[in-house]
């Protein structure tokens, strides 16, 4: 992006320095909303996926329902929630959790279903019960797929937080919209770049954490 007018540059270090308090507040809100949403969504998705895995008949309805939630546009979902949960943080958080849910449930389920049947049989042959097989064999084996799901969910959530602007809780989206309304290019661009940076950093952190948690994948001999 090059400056279209000299008086209103897209990138301005002065803006960042003079408004750091403002920016860091929006940044903090953005990050905390993302983290909370992903953690809550994961806490719901994990048991749901395990249930769908243990009772395959429930897999269709669970995936279908989260698919319907996912199809509803974020703006519409916030609009449907806002009259009931009020204008503010809760509304945004519920919306974000709803979107992260589908990605997480689907990836965890794919991971669990992708476990080599021979590994499962071996564990059963060692006398493991179904719960123990799930917790000590299937879940660890499915970890790479789960990490992929977490990364996807986190990156999309970072982008989605900005729509929270319609109920006044959009993190960096707040800055973008304010900058847009006052025709302040630097504010829009800084917030956009920070959004990209959060997504990138979160993705990297999760990727590294995933690698550390699954040392057997790196050797290439694991399942």
């Amino acid at each position: 992006m090059t400056a279209s007018e000299p008086a209103n540059p897209w990138l301005s270090w002065d803006y960042v320095q003079n408004n750091w308090a403002d920016i860091s507040e929006a940044l903090g809100q953005h990050v905390s909303l993302t983290v909370q949403a992903v953690v809550i969504a994961f806490a719901i998705a994990l048991p749901l996926a395990m249930l769908a895995h243990a009772r395959p008949r429930l897999a269709g309805p669970i995936l279908g329902l989260s698919g319907v939630l996912y199809t509803i546009p974020s703006l519409a979902l916030f609009a449907i929630l806002a009259p009931f949960t009020g204008i503010g943080r809760t509304t945004v958080l519920i919306g974000l959790v709803a979107y992260a849910l589908l990605v997480l449930v689907r990836n965890i389920l794919v991971g669990l279903q992708g476990v080599d049947p021979e590994i499962r049989d071996a564990a059963r042959g060692l006398g493991y019960g179904p719960t123990r097989v799930l917790l000590t064999v299937e879940l660890p084996t499915a970890l790479p797929a789960i990490v992929v799901g977490l990364r996807l969910a986190t990156v999309t959530t970072v982008a989605l937080v900005t729509i929270g602007v319609v109920v006044g809780f959009g993190g960096l989206g707040q800055l973008m919209f304010r900058g847009f309304n006052s025709n302040y290019h630097a504010e829009v661009m800084t917030a956009t770049l920070l959004c990209l940076a959060i997504a990138l950093v979160a993705d990297l952190l999760l990727a590294v954490a995933g690698r550390l948690a699954t040392p057997w994948v790196r050797t290439g001999s694991g399942a």
Partner: peptide
């Protein structure tokens, strides 16, 4: 695919709307 996932639509929309 990755960039489009991380870049908020809202941001791109505002950037476009602020230009010509």
């Amino acid at each position: 695919a990755n960039t489009s996932r991380a870049l908020p639509t809202f941001a791109l929309l505002l950037i476009f709307a602020s230009t010509a």
